[in-house]
């Protein structure tokens, strides 16, 4: 735990700087293409939210642009904060919501993702 930084890495780092400096040179080798022959897949480990009344509203309105971990990772937020958040989705990011849909969505978020009442 208390070793100094990896000596080889550090040496490579310092040598690299000495060799290249900030002065230029014309490269000769072609660039590597890491994609050659590869088809990489992103994981599809989508989370879901708490199964409670109103979840279907979230699933219908909140998954087209991003995964639901955007919601579940937030700290507990008050009703006012959730309202502002959902309004930001509508006004700033163009979520296709009408203002009268928002209270029902916020009901779900407040019931499941707000600070615990004492």
């Amino acid at each position: 735990m208390n070793r100094p930084f990896h000596p080889i890495l550090l040496a490579a780092l310092l040598l690299g700087i000495a060799a290249h400096g900030i002065s230029g040179e014309v490269p000769v080798e072609p660039l590597k293409n890491p994609f050659a022959g590869d088809a990489w897949k992103l994981p599809t480990n989508q989370v879901t939210l708490k199964n409670a009344p109103g979840l279907e509203l979230i699933q219908a309105n909140c998954v087209m642009c991003h995964s639901l971990d955007y919601v579940s990772m937030q700290p507990p937020l008050t009703r006012a904060q959730w309202t502002a958040g959902v309004d930001k989705m509508r006004v700033r990011f163009g979520a296709p919501l009408t203002t009268n849909q928002i209270p029902a969505i916020v009901d779900y978020l407040e019931a499941n993702y707000a600070p615990k009442k004492p």
Partner: peptide
């Protein structure tokens, strides 16, 4: 880009 312009490095 790489062959037409000077190549430089920075940490």
């Amino acid at each position: 880009l790489r062959t037409r312009f000077e190549n430089v490095e920075t940490v």
